[in-house]
Design a protein around this nucleic acid. Structure first.
Length: 279
DNA sequence: CAACCCACCTGACTGC
DNA sequence: TGCAGTCAGGTGGGTT
């Protein structure tokens, strides 16, 4: 569900609300999310101050002060919501909602994690070697950081027969791009999603890298895409859906050439594209 | 390795 | 109305 723009929207929303605040307590209602939550490590965060809210790939990273400078890793999975709610200190907390699995109580701010499908995750890493954490160690290039460009895409795609869209979604190579933005980037670049990655010219890699950067940046500016479950920290919707060129627009006219947008299925995922202006 | 395919889980929707 | 089937912003792990 949430891709880079949605996670980044949550990050920018949460940071000013949590940074500098002390975590009073942690409440776990159920810990069988994607992986079991390490209860002791999470409880060990209590009493510490949040120093930053960062992001790596689609993970939210809550940095804390004190011994080991621990970091909470939060993944929203497909349906996770990371809600930050203002509350009155030392007053009763709101009732638990359906599918609300854990809370972080910051005194005057309450973080509530709601995730019906439970594909989300909560883990704790040591700050010193954060990038060595098993969930982060194998992750690839950040698309909005230096190092991502046409030369990069050209280099990693040589001799690869996998589809371009699958390559864009391969987190070992490039992080943050999921099913919506992979289709959108291919459309912007005029590249067919099923093209063998190794067949891309250097020029096409330039176009594709630019397209990825543009679509992610535009989506962040719009607060992400809310089709179904995604919401920001205050439950606000993102409004990038109305700027999408192809995703969930099967049969509607291509915004560039007017041909009907097509839907195909690749590896169980929907792919939207224009057969007339993507080559 | 690279390229698939599956599972994990719940809810919404479609068609019979 | 009910029930079965399909699908949904992700991704680690297993198989070929």
């Amino acid at each position: 569900m949430p891709e880079l723009p949605e996670v980044e929207t949550v990050r920018t929303g949460a940071e000013p609300l949590l940074r500098g605040r002390r975590l009073g307590g942690v409440e776990l209602r159920r810990h069988d999310l994607r992986w079991p939550i390490p209860v002791a490590a999470v409880q060990g965060l209590a009493g510490r101050r949040c120093t930053a809210v960062a992001r790596r790939a689609k993970y939210l990273l809550l940095h804390f002060d004190g011994d080991g400078a621990p970091v909470a890793l939060v993944h929203l999975g497909m349906t996770g919501r990371f809600l930050v709610e203002p509350v009155a200190p030392r007053r009763p907390r709101p009732a638990w909602r359906p599918h609300e699995h854990w809370r972080l109580d910051f005194g005057d701010r309450l973080v509530r994690f709601v995730d019906p499908r439970r594909f989300g995750a909560l883990d704790v890493a040591a700050g010193a070697d954060l990038s060595a954490h098993p969930l982060l160690a194998g992750l690839g290039q950040e698309p909005l950081q230096p190092g991502f460009d046409g030369a990069f895409l050209h280099r990693v795609s040589r001799r690869r027969r996998t589809a371009v869209k699958a390559l864009l979604m391969d987190a070992r190579i490039l992080v943050g791009v999921g099913n919506i933005y992979a289709s959108e980037a291919c459309w912007r670049a005029g590249v067919r999603p099923r093209r063998a990655a190794g067949s891309l010219s250097r020029r096409e890699c330039d176009a594709l890298a630019a397209a990825v950067g543009e679509v992610l940046t535009a989506a962040i500016a719009a607060g992400g895409t809310s089709f179904r479950d995604y919401r920001g920290v205050g439950e606000e919707q993102g409004f990038f859906a109305r700027e999408l060129a192809v995703y969930e627009r099967e049969g509607e006219p291509c915004r560039r050439c007017g041909a009907a947008v097509r839907l195909t299925r690749d590896g169980g995922r929907s792919t939207y594209w224009c057969a007339s202006c993507q080559n």
